[in-house]
Computed example of a mutant assay.
Amino acid sequence: MKALVVGASGATGQHLVTLLLSKNYNVKIVVRSTENLPISWKSNKNLEIIIASILDFSDEEMQELTAECQAIISCLGHNLSFKGIYGEPRKLVTEATRRLCEAVLSNKPQAPTKYILMNTSGNRNLDLNEKVSFPEKIVIALLRLILPPHVDNEQAAEYLRTEIGQQNKFIEWTAVRPDDLINNEKITPYEIHPSPIKSAIFKAGKVSRINVAHFMSLLLTSEGLWEKWKGKMPVIYNKK
Rank of each mutant, 00 (worst) to 15 (best):
P89R: 09
Y190K: 07
V207D: 08
W173I: 07
N125K: 02
P196L: 01
V31C: 04
R161S: 00
Q70R: 14
E136D: 13
K83D: 08
F82W: 14
C75P: 10
W173A: 01
T221S: 15
P178G: 04
P112L: 05
K114A: 04
N184P: 08
L143Q: 11
V93C: 08
M1W: 08
I171S: 04
V207A: 01
V151Y: 10
I140F: 12
L147D: 00
G205C: 06
Y190L: 00
S106P: 02
P148K: 04
S195N: 13
I72A: 05
T120P: 02
W229Y: 15
I116M: 00
V27M: 07
H193K: 09
Q14L: 11
S222E: 15
D152N: 11
L21Q: 05
G122W: 01
N79W: 06
L143P: 08
W226Q: 06
L37A: 06
N119W: 01
R209C: 05
K240S: 14
L126R: 12
S199C: 06
E163R: 12
E60D: 13
V27L: 02
G122K: 03
P189S: 03
N119F: 05
S199T: 12
T18R: 14
L92N: 01
Q166D: 11
P234D: 01
V6Y: 10
G87Y: 13
R144M: 04
M118T: 11
L218W: 01
R32F: 04
K198P: 09
K228W: 10
Y115F: 15
L19Y: 01
A67G: 00
N125C: 13
E130H: 07
P38I: 09
E68Y: 10
N107H: 07
S58N: 08
N24V: 07
I73T: 08
F170Y: 15
K206E: 14
G122A: 07
S217M: 13
S58Y: 03
L20W: 12
L65M: 06
A67D: 12
R98I: 14
A213H: 04
Q167V: 02
H214M: 04
Q155M: 15
P112F: 02
K239G: 05
K83M: 08
E130V: 11
T174A: 12
N168V: 07
G231M: 05
L65F: 02
G165P: 13
N46V: 10
L117C: 10
E61G: 12
F215K: 10
S199Q: 08
T12Q: 05
N26W: 02
N184C: 11
R98A: 08
A67T: 00
I54D: 00
L218K: 15
E223Q: 15
I51K: 15
A71P: 02
N129G: 00
L117M: 09
E172T: 12
R177H: 05
W229G: 10
G205Q: 04
R161E: 00
G224W: 02
L19E: 13
L65I: 03
V31Q: 03
G165K: 09
Q110G: 08
F202Y: 15
T162H: 10
Q63L: 05
P178A: 12
R99G: 03
M62W: 01
P109A: 06
K131A: 14
V212K: 03
L65G: 06
